[in-house]
């Protein structure tokens, strides 16, 4: 029960309207776990998330319904560098300004802004264009997920205001599917089922 409380508290991040208590479910079947993972994959492979979960070329992507049929590298020849914050060339924060007190900019296609330094996800978490099993095995591998168990992943979801933006991306952009709360609950279901991945034998 201690775990519940911790997660609940940490999920009380600014992006959440109100504190949400999460319960780690018991008696989750493999099927329920895999179903939860499928929903998680819908989120992790969604452009709002995967565009910044790119590989070692450090080039964020522009894709999703507002960009037409085909994905393209982030315009303006943007490269976030090995720093993943653009320090080598143009800082991500040159355009993705820090925004905490002022209300969100509602101009369509304005640069996404949150109360954090905009950055790419770590290179280990390369999701863009990856299949379900590839993302799944990365997420359950502590060597490649920041040393996290599934509860820690759920806690991380509550912390990270950049990922909260995925569900509130402003006009002209399609939000990530489900909600942050549902996504967090799915991570807990998936974890309770033993973090199964498609094709596990």
């Amino acid at each position: 029960m201690l775990k519940h409380a911790a997660i609940a508290a940490l999920l009380a991040a600014p992006a959440l309207a109100e504190e949400t208590e999460f319960v780690i479910p018991e008696g989750v079947t493999l099927e329920e776990g895999l179903a939860a993972w499928d929903r998680i994959y819908e989120v992790t492979s969604h452009p709002r998330c995967s565009n910044c979960h790119v590989g070692a070329d450090n080039v964020p992507m522009w894709s999703g319904p507002s960009y037409g049929d085909t994905a393209r590298p982030h315009g303006m020849n943007i490269n976030a560098g090995d720093s993943r914050v653009g320090a080598e060339y143009v800082q991500c924060s040159t355009c993705h300004a820090y925004r905490e007190f002022a209300p969100a900019d509602t101009t369509p296609h304005a640069a996404p802004q949150v109360a954090a330094d905009w950055r790419l996800a770590p290179v280990e978490a390369e999701w863009f264009g990856k299949a379900s099993r590839e993302i799944c095995t990365q997420l359950r591998d502590p060597a490649r997920n920041g040393g996290r168990g599934f509860e820690d992943i759920a806690v991380h979801l509550g912390h990270d205001v950049i990922l909260h933006w995925a569900w509130n991306p402003g006009p002209g952009r399609q939000p990530a599917p489900y909600s942050l709360e549902e996504h967090t609950q799915d991570v807990l279901i998936w974890g309770a089922a033993g973090m199964p991945c498609e094709g596990d034998s």
Binding site: V90, Q91, S93, T94, C95, H96, A97, Y98, R99, E100, F101, A102, D105, A110, A111, Q113
Partner: peptide
């Protein structure tokens, strides 16, 4: 000292 697009910085931030 850092280049910033001033159209993106809310004065409140």
């Amino acid at each position: 000292g850092q280049a910033v697009r001033s159209c993106q910085v809310a004065i409140g931030d």
